[in-house]
């Protein structure tokens, strides 16, 4: 993303001043920024992790607390991503297919997690569900624990990932309009048939893209989760929190080994993102020809 925004102005600059050196300087600058800020840290993570050999590397990853953290991270992803897909499709459907009061407020609200610091989001949940919180007493009476437990981590993850699917689908669905859905209804399709046979295939790639972004964020979330987690090893530690703990204990090799696990997951997701993005561009392009 950041490399794109650096490289984007280049073509116009090149057109205005067709001198070769100007273009090359800018491209060179973009690449060195990219290498220094993005590539170098990646290399350092890997070299640090493998510093003490492959054996130490794997033992850090397969250590029970690390595996528990991995499990918890995947659990948070497995719960928050489907819920966000549900919410995102519903919200995008409402915004793009219906006219109603307060539509722009709803769209703004969806963006809220982008602008609010995740730490504040975490604190809000502590204030709501913590022992001294608004619902704290009631929860205590019914023996339900949310803060410093898995439900709190899932809630915090949900909060920070809310916009991803909806944000991706709203413009896509607005652009496509409602005529194909109307045509399906006129041809006798029921609401579900229309949704599965017409709407879903049309938003498929946008949906996948949103899910990929949502997954990446859910896995990497630190701030909000950190506030509600309580850092109980093997119980309420996600991968990013585990990395932090290891690092604070001066266990650098283990910290970087676990970090490289996160890195590997991120790379897979990046590839998925690239793939779905190219599909969307192809669809948009063919749509524009109409």
């Amino acid at each position: 993303m950041s490399s794109l925004s650096v490289a984007a102005p280049l073509p116009t600059v090149a057109r205005q001043a067709p001198k070769q050196w100007g273009r090359l300087t800018l491209i060179g600058a973009a690449w060195s920024v990219f290498a220094f800020f993005l590539l170098l840290p990646l290399v350092i993570v890997l070299t640090e992790a493998l510093q003490a050999g492959v054996g130490t590397f794997f033992s850090a990853i397969f250590e029970p607390d690390a595996l528990a953290a991995l499990r918890l991270t995947l659990l948070a992803v497995a719960i928050s991503v489907p819920l966000n897909v549900l919410f995102g499709v519903a919200a995008a459907w409402c915004v793009s297919k219906y006219e109603f009061r307060g539509k722009s407020i709803l769209v703004t609200l969806i963006d809220l997690p982008f602008s609010v610091s995740p730490v504040i989001a975490g604190l809000v949940y502590v204030l709501l569900f913590g022992a001294q919180g608004l619902f704290g007493e009631w929860l205590l009476e019914h023996d339900i624990q949310i803060i410093f437990a898995v439900p709190g981590i899932v809630l915090a993850t949900l909060f920070v990932t809310v916009p991803f699917v909806a944000r991706e689908l709203i413009p896509l669905m607005q652009e496509q309009g409602t005529q194909e859905e109307e045509a399906a209804r006129l041809l006798g399709a029921s609401g579900w048939q229309m949704f599965w046979h017409v709407t879903v295939p049309n938003i498929r790639w946008g949906l996948i893209y949103g899910v990929v972004l949502c997954t990446a964020r859910a896995m990497g979330e630190f701030g909000a989760v950190s506030v509600v987690s309580g850092h109980i090893r093997g119980l309420t530690n996600t991968l990013p929190l585990h990395v932090e703990i290891l690092y604070n204990e001066y266990n650098h090799v283990a910290a970087f080994s676990v970090a490289s696990l996160l890195l590997a997951l991120a790379l897979v997701i990046l590839l998925l993102k690239q793939w779905s993005e190219s599909r969307i561009n192809r669809l948009r392009h063919s749509g524009a020809e109409e």
Partner: peptide, 16 residues
Amino acid sequence: RDRNVGFVFQHYALFR
């Protein structure tokens, strides 16, 4: 869906 009318849109609305 129960009126059984055929409808043709200006911009075709074919399922892309």
